[in-house]
Nucleic acid binder design. Structure first.
Lengths: 206, 206
DNA sequence: TAGATTGTTAATCGATTAACAATC
DNA sequence: TAGATTGTTAATCGATTAACAATC
């Protein structure tokens, strides 16, 4: 079966499985059961099996899952097996942190362009990527076939940047600015606002 | 009624409402309906009403919600109306970004201590907060009544830092390191792993 | 074979949405 | 009063968990 209709909750768990599987692989563990996975990730094994079964039969009854094979399969599902170019706007601390994230890995998803509006930032390098003026966004997106945009500018600038990304033809936006932004339906938007994260935490502590 | 059993989904939406209400307040808008809120936040108005109604009757039939009053109430619910001290370990780019987040606001939730293990970092200041050696964590947590810990160290260090936080008596941890960490049941743990965020994004674009 | 573990169906649980009486 | 909008109950929808036949 292809993909019936996969919920976002499922998709968000796959990278968590992937991370632990990669850890197992590094430790030369070749096989793992949903029970093992569930114990380590503190999740229900039935849920793990069901999540994986949406995409195919990856395990073997009585045995479990082959770690290396499952890693390959999850990467395939998440489309992490093909090149995916990312542009980041806002070369502040958060932007720099994100740029450094996958700098040394051989992930296929890569931040290939960084933009800022601050003249002092232009021309400096973050890793191997030179910071460009925001005016060059559209041109670079086309030239480098950029599909995803990350927004790490202040709230006041964020919607404007999003508009420019949409205009440039970007397909998905990961927004870190604390605003509710508007994008057309054909653009996928994900918010990762760290202030709301922090605020909801207070409820469980205070 | 007090709080029957509020789901995390509800708690995570409250800061989003709060943010937009504060925006309305800045624009001198005094009243808002759940319909308005729903339209701007792209949410179902019934859900917004229900979320709020868990905590009391904050609106007026036929009128809507008083913006200022609702802001005060949501802050009260989230316990953002009382002082909440936060310690951050890992004074890298991400740590610095988070430290700067609420530096200029008059939020009651504040990062009051920053730690790092890198000798060169010790003694430098982020905003007004001096970076301390990690060895001083326990002492500072006690002295400053720190309740929440934020972990922005590399994956290899994260569990060790979490253990120290738990040992020091911290009540909640916000973890940005890409690992599945273990904490005792009495400590609230929230993961905000930006790599998994990025990876799940690929699914919707590729 | 006996034990283990998957894939999947059915049962449960919880969250979202619709609808509407109450009332400003 | 008529129109608007809440708070809340009931209906729907979706996600999680349990259970088990299939099978390695």
């Amino acid at each position: 079966m292809k993909t019936p209709k996969i919920s976002e909750a499922v998709i968000r768990r796959l990278p968590v499985y992937l991370r632990y599987l990669q850890h197992l692989h590094e430790m030369n563990i070749t096989t793992v059961s949903s029970l093992d996975l569930g114990q380590h990730l503190e999740m229900n094994p039935a849920q793990i099996r069901k999540d994986l079964a949406y995409f195919g039969e990856f395990g073997r009854k009585g045995i479990g899952y082959d770690v290396e094979y499952l890693i390959a399969k999850i990467k395939q599902i998440l489309k992490l097996d093909r090149r995916l170019n990312v542009a980041l706007v806002g070369a502040g601390n958060l932007g720099t942190a994100l740029s450094n994230y996958n700098r040394y890995t051989n992930e296929k998803m890569k931040i290939v362009a960084i933009f800022d509006s601050f003249p002092e930032k232009i021309g400096t390098k973050i890793g191997t990527v030179k910071v460009q003026p925001i005016q060059e966004l559209a041109k670079t997106v086309k030239e480098q076939d950029v599909k995803i945009g990350i927004i790490t500018v202040p709230a006041t600038e964020a919607q404007k940047v999003a508009d420019q990304m949409v205009e440039a033809g970007i397909k998905g936006i990961l927004n870190f600015a604390p605003i509710t932004m508007r994008v057309p339906n054909h653009v996928y938007l994900r918010n990762a606002d760290l202030t709301t994260e922090l605020q909801s935490l207070a409820y469980y502590i205070g």
